[in-house]
């Protein structure tokens, strides 16, 4: 198969025809931060954390295809600022109490904030009123922590061949809705890919929290993306 050549932060790399910038960068050992993108899921470019500048234009790396000679900026101050702002906004628009969250140390949003060295967000906390759905025997859905990444929506449809989750409303009212009165009324199983797909502590298995001691959780010592930047290294 023919390959295309592009540069990312000045480094020359090659990609397969039709490969996304995110995947091509990954193959070249460059981590592009992301939240709504997840391996095995069709990307839909909604969180914008993977924004890069491609030939002068801002694009979402998870959906943008690499073209011959493309010049990609990933680590510029400007792009860093964009990403940091998105992460900040995700924190203030929900209720993220990491100190007791079962996902802490395993959470991709938190890990990104750590990687970006964010000590405090720049925006005012909104403290929205959100629901928690505890109806299901093995899974709970805490909307306080949902970042509307759509990973569960896609995983349920494309991998589990169900349709447990959908988004309803638009803009700041957009929220995740389950296909039934509550989670218990859906055909969701704890073993579904949808449950495992959530990057944050919103869609969670019950009774397994805090199993890994602090200090040994995935992002305690190793920043998110390190596996892509230096594979095989601990």
């Amino acid at each position: 198969m023919s390959r295309v050549t592009f540069t990312i932060d000045g480094k020359t790399a090659t990609a397969e025809q039709g490969q996304t910038i995110l995947k091509a960068a990954e193959a070249a050992g460059v981590y592009i931060p992301r939240l709504c993108a997840c391996k095995d899921l069709v990307p839909h470019g909604s969180c914008r954390v993977c924004s890069v500048r491609v030939n002068g234009r801002i694009q979402a790396a998870c959906v943008q295809i690499v073209t011959e000679g493309a010049i990609v900026e990933n680590e510029s101050d400007e792009i860093r600022e964009y990403r940091r702002n998105i992460i900040d906004m995700l924190f203030v628009e929900g209720n993220h109490f990491c100190m007791f969250c079962e996902k802490s140390g395993h959470c991709e949003l938190q890990a990104l904030a750590y990687r970006f060295g964010i000590a405090a967000p720049r925006y005012r906390y909104l403290y929205p009123k959100r629901e928690i759905d505890l109806s299901h025997p093995d899974v709970y859905l805490d909307h306080n922590r949902c970042i509307l990444c759509g990973r569960c929506v896609r995983a349920s449809q494309d991998l589990d061949h169900k349709n447990v989750f959908q988004f309803v409303e638009r803009g700041c009212r957009k929220r995740l809705q389950v296909d039934g009165e509550a989670l218990a009324a859906t055909d969701l199983r704890v073993t579904d890919e949808a449950v495992a797909s959530c990057p944050v502590g919103a869609l969670m298995r019950k009774r397994v929290g805090y199993a890994v001691p602090v200090g040994r959780r995935p992002y305690d010592e190793i920043p998110i993306g390190k596996d892509i930047e230096s594979p095989g290294e601990e």
Binding site: F97, M99, F100, P121, Y125, Y127, P128, K129
Partner: peptide, 10 residues
């Protein structure tokens, strides 16, 4: 961010 006491905020 307010922490536990901020759980009353909504």
């Amino acid at each position: 961010n307010g922490g536990i006491p901020a759980m009353r905020n909504n």
